[in-house]
Simulated assay, not measured.
Amino acid sequence: MSIFNLTAFEPSTFILMGIPDLETAHLWISIPFSTFYIVGLLGNFTVLFVVGKEQTLHKPMYLLLCMLALTDIGTSTSVVPKALCIFWFNLNSINVGGCLTQMFFLHGVSMMHSAILVTMAFDRYVAICNPLRYATILTNARIAKLGLVGLIRAVLLILPLPLLLIKQPFCSNHIIPNTYCDHMAVAKMSCGDITVNRTYGLVMAFVVIMLDLTLIVLSYSLIIRAILRISSKKAHQKALNTCTAHICVMLMSYPPFLFSTLTHRFGQGIAPQVHVILANLYFLLPPMLNPIIYGAKTKELREKMGKYTCRR
């Protein structure tokens, strides 16, 4: 435990423990971490490559898939490389600037991810409920503008988190029991009053996520109503199939995020290693599984991906 002797570090340095109480197993834990990360990168870069190369895929739906792939790459890359440095080389230290930068990109990209899921729900609503006007309502330019709005929202709402922490005095205990710099984990090391940090983080997270979830639920309520009005079972199945992939992605994204947010504030009874492992899986599993899900459930994308990946 000599690596955690804080007297050997500058006051501007934090120590990332990795996974508490499992330090001796870090090398073994790094195997699934690195595997999931590499598979996720390959899958998401494949989506970006295929959509970029194929003119027939230059459509709003596939532009959204590219945005989703970019956020998946961003979220996993914000966490996994540093985690692997901890697991492999015991490089636990991170300066305050690097910690706050990681926090900003991590939470910002996660919020951008949520905005894209909302836009994808709107895309499915227009495709099913108003198919004749789909091409005029959702153009590539309009999707790009919606993506830009999501990016601006993420920057404006997440930027106060590190700015509020910069002004906080930190105690002698600079150990963060995690593999990355989460907002509340850093805030808890402060010797000052973190009421504003705690309140803003909680309100911002739940207002934004609840707003996004409300819009998604509204979209799917209208979609279900439209599907129930269709008499053909074949048409029912086709309409539902277009939404299956998006629903799976949402189920992998929102519950782990809400779990991580709540346990940082109210989960004192949860073992820290359980919390850290589950929080890290949020940054590992969705980026790995999303391209697989969309590749399997979207026929046109699956065929184009097969064109490049199955060449002899």
Results as ranks from 00 to 15, higher is better:
S2A: 10
L6D: 11
E10S: 15
P11I: 00
F14H: 01
L16C: 08
L16F: 08
D21Q: 13
L27S: 15
I29M: 15
L42W: 11
N44K: 12
V47E: 04
V51R: 05
V51E: 00
T56Q: 04
L57Y: 01
Y62I: 02
L65E: 13
A69S: 15
S76Q: 15
F87W: 11
L91T: 08
N92R: 13
V96F: 12
G98M: 13
C99S: 10
L100W: 13
F105T: 08
L106T: 07
R124V: 03
Y125M: 03
V126F: 02
V126C: 00
C129K: 05
C129Q: 00
T136C: 04
N140M: 08
A141L: 03
K145H: 03
K145C: 09
I152P: 04
R153S: 10
L156V: 15
I158A: 05
P160L: 10
P162G: 14
S172G: 13
H174Y: 01
C181H: 04
V186P: 01
V196F: 13
R198H: 11
M204Y: 06
V208H: 15
V208R: 02
T214Q: 11
L215K: 04
I216P: 07
V217R: 08
Y220T: 09
I227N: 02
K233I: 04
H236S: 07
L240C: 13
T242C: 07
C243K: 00
T244L: 15
M250L: 15
P255M: 02
F257E: 12
G267N: 02
I270K: 03
V276P: 04
P286M: 00
P287Y: 04
P287C: 02
P287F: 00
Y294K: 02
K299R: 14
R302H: 10
K307I: 03
Y308E: 02
C310F: 13
R311I: 14
R312M: 08
